[in-house]
Every structure is written in C-alpha cells, then in structure tokens.
C-alpha cells in the first residue's frame, strides 16, 4: 500500500487522538438546544464552518502542547539557567522534525510488514 500525502498528514501523531477540552465541547450541545434554531440556514452553516475552523485550531494547539512537553523532557536535561545551552537549543530545533520522522518511519515499517503477509 502506497503512502499518500493525505495518509501522511492524517497519520501525524495526536491528530486523531485529540479530544476537545470539556468546556469547549459541551458548548455545542448547549448551543443546538436553544440558540441555534433561532438562526437561519445560511447563518447556521457559517457558524458550523467557523466552529470547524476553530476546532482544527484547537487540535493544532493541542498537538503543539504535547510536542513541547515531549521535546522539553527530551532536550532540557541540565538545570534551568537564564537561557538554553547550545546543545539544548539545537536539540529543541530538531526535536519536532525527528519526532515526526520517527512516526512516519514506524508507520512505513508497519505497512511493509503488512504487505509481506499478503
């Protein structure tokens, strides 16, 4: 199975596992119960699209939080000074790309193993 661009994107870590913060997700049922019916169809559609955009922003932010956490734990090994050491700084610069490379590598390994079975 060939890994398409779309497959690569959708397999980036955290993209599927992310759930919205509780306050944010309870917002939607709350809206549809009483407020949304007062909007006309075009406005409803616009709001739905807006919400979708904001949700993908939330997803992106959540991913960045997770990655920052991972990279911080991996790269910041010394005690906390006024700024990062040179090696910590370069580790941080490379961390995200190598993490995503690992993720893609693992996916490709799995795909290859699956193909051998068929």
């Amino acid at each position: 199975m060939k890994i398409t661009r779309h497959a690569v994107i959708s397999r980036l870590p955290f993209c599927s596992s992310y759930t919205l913060p509780p306050r944010y997700s309870t917002y939607i049922p709350k809206m549809s119960a009483s407020q949304v019916p007062q909007f006309d169809a075009a406005t409803k559609k616009e709001l739905e699209e807006f919400l979708e955009q904001e949700q993908s922003k939330a997803k992106l932010q959540a991913t960045v939080h997770e990655l920052t956490n991972t990279c911080w734990k991996t790269c910041i090994t010394g005690s906390i000074g006024a700024k990062f050491s040179r090696s910590e700084a370069s580790c941080l610069e490379n961390c995200v790309d190598r993490f995503l490379d690992s993720s893609l590598f693992i996916v490709r390994q799995i795909e290859a193993q699956k193909n051998q079975l068929h």
Binding site: R5, V8, I9, L12, L60, T63, V64, H65, L67, T68, C71, W72, C75, I76, I80, K83, F84, L92, E93, C95, V96, D97, L100
Partner: peptide, 22 residues
C-alpha cells in the same frame, strides 16, 4: 520564560513541517 520559548520553537517547527508535508 524558557518553556514559552520552547513552545514557540515547537510551534514554528510543527507548522513548517505540516505545510511542507501538505
């Protein structure tokens, strides 16, 4: 201060990577 700097760095790297892949 450092954690926020790390957050900015990661955010920049991630956005760059995603648009590169896309």
């Amino acid at each position: 201060t450092l954690y926020m700097a790390a957050f900015d760095q990661v955010s920049k790297s991630y956005v760059a990577r995603v648009s590169k892949e896309r």
